[in-house]
């Protein structure tokens, strides 16, 4: 399975529809921005090789659909994740309010062996938009992060390429640390298999 290949770090990007998950990912991997990204349906991923502490690792970044209706599909690829990137739009308070539900849902579906210490990171995207449209302040976001175990926080703009590379350097570091600590546990689980079993039984009903 992909998540268990040596030095392949699996990262899941979550957040409300339209906050810019696809854009952030593409800005990081391809260093470009397009306003023509379509709403993500299902899931897709991009990979990028990065150097972390003199180690070459491959980041596999999973982009997902943002409407909560499609959250239940996460089982197919949340498992084996090494880091979860939460994204909200600083100009959209609802996207900030739903962060907890994304985080909880991820922990349930991915069921990492270390839910208390599993690495999350928060990105407040679209900071390029004029200041008067901003609806979530930086302090509010920092408070959120503090309350959830010092989650690293970055204010980003996928459009203007602000802070995106920096954010993902941190992602890579956190993911690598998590993989090292989680290595043994991961080798004994075959989570997608379990999922398949449950779907299999449902199809003969």
């Amino acid at each position: 399975m992909a998540g268990k290949k040596k030095h392949l770090l699996k990262v899941i990007i979550l957040g409300e529809s339209g906050v810019g998950k696809t854009s952030i990912m593409n800005q990081y991997v391809n260093r470009k921005f397009s306003k023509d990204y379509k709403a993500t349906i299902g899931a897709d991923f991009l990979t990028k090789e990065v150097l972390v502490d003199d180690k070459v690792v491959t980041l596999q970044l999973w982009d997902t659909a943002g409407q909560e209706r499609f959250q239940s599909l996460g089982v197919a690829f949340y498992r084996g994740a090494d880091c979860c990137v939460l994204v909200y739009d600083v100009n959209n308070s609802k996207s900030f309010e739903t962060l907890d539900s994304w985080r909880d849902e991820f922990l349930i579906q991915a069921s990492p062996s270390n839910p208390e210490t599993f690495p999350f990171i928060l990105l407040g995207n679209k900071v390029d938009v004029e200041e008067q449209k901003r609806m979530v302040s930086k302090s509010k976001a920092l408070a959120f992060c503090q309350a959830r175990g010092e989650i690293p926080y970055f204010e980003t703009s996928a459009k203007e390429a602000i802070n995106v590379q920096e954010a993902f350097e941190t992602v890579a570091k956190l993911a690598l640390e998590n993989m090292d600590s989680d290595d043994i546990a991961a080798d004994f689980t075959d989570p997608i298999h379990l999922d398949m079993e449950s779907q299999k039984t449902s199809c003969y009903c």
Binding site: M1, K38, G42, A43, A76, I192, Q199
Partner: peptide, 22 residues
């Protein structure tokens, strides 16, 4: 597909959801 953990056929999700639109 079973061997590759793909028999959940998630790879067909988009095709089926929006009738091959993409």
């Amino acid at each position: 597909l079973e061997k590759t953990d793909s028999s959940n056929l998630f790879c067909f999700f988009r095709m089926l959801l929006i009738y091959f639109k993409r």
